[in-house]
Design a protein around this nucleic acid. Sequence first.
DNA 1: TATTAGCACTCCTTGCGATTGAGTGCTAAT
DNA 2: ATTAGCACTCAATCGCAAGGAGTGCTAATA
Lengths: 353, 353
Amino acid sequence: MDLDERKLKILQAIIRNYLETGEPVGSRTISKYTDLNLSSATIRNEMSDLEELGYILQPHTSAGRIPSDKGYRLYVDRMMLEKEEQLNQATQEVKEMQRILLEREDKMESVLKQMAKMLAANTNYATMISAPQVRGNKLKFIQLSRVDKHQLLTTIVVEGNVIKNSMITVGDPLDDETLLKLNILLNTNLNGLPIEEINLAMIAKLKQQAGDHAGIVAEVMDAVASQIKNDENIEIYTSGANNIFKYPELADNQRASELITTFEEKQLLTELVNETLTDETGTGIQVYIGNETPVKTMKDCSVVTATYELEEGVKGTIGIIGPRRMDYDKVIDTLKTLKSQLDTIYKKDDGQT
Amino acid sequence: MDLDERKLKILQAIIRNYLETGEPVGSRTISKYTDLNLSSATIRNEMSDLEELGYILQPHTSAGRIPSDKGYRLYVDRMMLEKEEQLNQATQEVKEMQRILLEREDKMESVLKQMAKMLAANTNYATMISAPQVRGNKLKFIQLSRVDKHQLLTTIVVEGNVIKNSMITVGDPLDDETLLKLNILLNTNLNGLPIEEINLAMIAKLKQQAGDHAGIVAEVMDAVASQIKNDENIEIYTSGANNIFKYPELADNQRASELITTFEEKQLLTELVNETLTDETGTGIQVYIGNETPVKTMKDCSVVTATYELEEGVKGTIGIIGPRRMDYDKVIDTLKTLKSQLDTIYKKDDGQT
DNA sequence: TATTAGCACTCCTTGCGATTGAGTGCTAAT
DNA sequence: ATTAGCACTCAATCGCAAGGAGTGCTAATA
């Protein structure tokens, strides 16, 4: 037995209807719904077949049918194919984001939050956005400055203009000359170097050259190292977690509690980000249905993600989390638009910010 | 009619029992519960009085009594008096926090998150912590550095070692001498100045002295200004929002959704922080019961807050949000301990970090 | 006079059976 | 191959009675 055209149409009708209502859909509904002009009895027979094939299932005898994960998967895959080439134009909001993201100020945090918020408001689902991650971690600039007698400020800039500061407290005040020497020492040795390539030998050498001020060098290196650690700790912004209460199938205490924790702790979401960033498909849009999602607490949800690329190697993930019966069509459209616009930044003026 | 000793004891018994069970408590329960050895009938009479006085209320006829906000208030106030002088010693965890907070690195963010988490885990309520806020906003240090040909890095340090960076893109590369001049110009004019005192006249003067590079000065001033704006945007960390699901009276969709939104958006929580920071009582611990809380979405909750002071004028708020029938005793103890330990930092080595 | 025992009354909760209604599967007719 | 018709299933809903926790009131008691 195979999926002929008619079965497909019926399946589609079932899914569409279920997405709208959230209720199991019966044969009579479909017999009116589709343009096939078939009686409910015929539909019943077809539905029976579809169930046998695993595309739909019955919550209990004498109930209507609901799509299975397999059914959703088919539906989504077909939809993705249809959409393949169609590119929508960007809204004004997206253009504004583009502008601000390019500037890469510390406004970025608030822009991403705003973006998550906007998406959540538009879609009625929960959303998350990971801040763009810099892969190439070359040191671009290091500087020690004296803030007052006992305090030095370390400023570290890495490729992609990620800036990091830290304060160092010193016992004896440093004079200008020493400070200059240290700055030259650090910059000539470290500038342009990928952080990963800084090894113990190099640190030892620097310390030796710093003489009395080896302690300061050590603290600077600590600050650099913590940059790497920070890197594992992806920043993620979420919004619209409360939207899960709009879908009864997610709103019971048990599930809601788990989901809320997931959104609040964000730790688990990093898995999702890592997953999407590595597992590249052609389109950059990924759909996880139910158990397919890498985050266990979301096994009753569907997750649609898009990876965007601001500059070469500077990538982030946008995710929309909703119930299985999410409006895939709209969500994928929205993400596709957003993604293509964000990507445009990179393609427009290649390389340089 | 007044509250004699016996009425008070009965009220206390009702509240204690209700805190434990969450169920309306009847006269028979109390008659066994207390050491007063009174029959349930007597208790009934007293309860009737207590209800008339507004300390307790009945969800419906033929149900037991539950405490009213007024009842809780009396209970909490009395408890606070009893606790007045008793100071508990700090746990190991708190001591560790002390150490890290003192260093005021960018680790602070993760420490505060950790702290919120720990509190939530210990108490089974939702928690929030606001990052310590600097009041005195004197500029301590400004510096422009060249990162590459077209990019300048502005580093601004204000009192309390809050650091801010921003990138400035310039068309024509600046030579070292110009850069040095600009740095001297900015520092001699602005160093030690409270941000509020920087006015248009001063900016105009600086721009004039900067000549060709007035644009750069303008951008630096923007960065300084955004420091003030940031100030309004208090950083708040939350944890344990999922705990609200443990209390049926908060766990219905309507309420849960509102609360979750409050925790996620955090915007509303700043009101709470502002409230607590201005409205100082002696102890620094505040208890808002039900409608007393400044955040409307929490009208069915009780909120206990503590303000802590790391250095002079550097304050933050810790809050615990739970149901009305929260274990006030434990919560207040915990917060009191934490607060006193954090405050100790300030009192130990006054003024200087 | 304060306390208590007793009793009628209220009203929420629980359980249970009957009813309803949407939907199916099967069979026989078209 | 399609459809009409019918018996059957089963979750959901309703009504109702029983149960029980708790109150308020009254009259007896110490």
